[in-house]
């Protein structure tokens, strides 16, 4: 397959970026999008040009590193898939494909398509610790968890911190991510002791990082590779409001 690529090239966070045209041929239909960029980079290196910087790690849809804004969508046109799980057969031979980094003030560009998402790490860190009992190993059933809550907490915990929600959001809001992280602990007894403090601290950190404000557009939910639901944001609102209004 043959493609025309328009790739965002940017030296560093301060430099201005721009789209650069590349054409690439002999691409196998079963290659992933990242493999296609590998092939392109290989060609660039052979020509003595600067290869395109991009993030990746697991290449199996679980690490969340592969941030690319492909053809106007976070992680490309597929529903519930990361960039590494996007295959070239999705496109038509001869297609022109735009490739940009995730763009948000809180995700400064490191180089080309690689962005700094450590704001997410700082939000997680702001959430603090979870109290657990040490000492003798407990009996597995000593902490009963309601089935429904366990399922919902597990669904929220599926978030891989990829940042597609921020990238897709017209407001660059991070609420889907933060709400998933707050929810996964809020619904389990293990998350109980620090529950209120955690909600306040994580929301404060989210706001301090310069993400936008959520206006319930729902683009995040539509683009999330792990299908994290908007119900988590409603839950976060409740958690935060309960912690701020009801508590002194």
């Amino acid at each position: 397959m043959k493609f025309n690529l328009k790739v965002w090239r940017q030296k560093n966070a301060k430099a201005d970026g721009r789209l650069v045209d590349y054409t690439i041929d002999n691409i196998n239909v079963d290659m992933s999008f990242l493999e296609m960029v590998d092939v392109l980079n290989d060609e660039l290196i052979r020509k003595g040009e600067d290869p395109i910087a991009f993030d990746h790690d697991c290449r199996e849809g679980i690490c969340g590193m592969c941030s690319m804004y492909i053809d106007g969508r976070a992680h490309g046109p597929h529903h519930a898939a990361t960039t590494c799980q996007l295959y070239m057969r999705t496109f038509k031979d001869g297609d022109t494909i735009y490739v940009e980094p995730f763009k948000a003030k809180a995700f400064p560009i490191i180089k080309d398509l690689a962005v700094d998402r450590s704001a997410f790490d700082r939000i997680i860190a702001a959430g603090g610790f979870v109290s657990v009992n040490t000492g003798q190993a407990q009996d597995a059933n000593s902490l009963p968890v309601e089935k429904e809550a366990a399922e919902k907490a597990m669904d929220a915990a599926a978030c891989i911190g990829c940042g597609a929600c921020v990238a897709a959001c017209p407001n660059s809001a991070a609420m889907l991510f933060v709400s998933a992280k707050i929810s996964q602990l809020a619904m389990l007894p293990q998350g109980g002791p620090e529950r209120k403090n955690r909600a306040i601290k994580m929301v404060e950190q989210m706001d301090a990082e310069g993400f936008g404000n959520c206006t319930n557009i729902g683009a995040c939910e539509a683009e999330c590779p792990k299908e994290i639901k908007l119900t988590n944001i409603a839950r976060m609102n409740r958690e935060y409001l309960a912690a701020t209004i009801i508590d002194e």
């Binding site: 328009k6 965002w8 970026g17 789209l19 804004y69 053809d71 106007g72 969508r73 046109p77 735009y98 940009e100 763009k103 948000a104 003030k105 809180a106 897709a168 017209p170 407001n171 660059s172 809001a173 310069g210 993400f211 936008g212 404000n213 206006t215 319930n216 557009i217 729902g218 683009a219 539509a222 683009e223």
Partner: peptide
């Protein structure tokens, strides 16, 4: 604030694929 949260816009964006224009 939300405009300021994305100082550099996407060159190509298909927002209509995942949300309604009025939202």
């Amino acid at each position: 604030q939300n405009r300021a949260a994305r100082p550099v816009k996407y060159a190509y964006n298909r927002a209509g694929d995942n949300s309604s224009w009025y939202s």
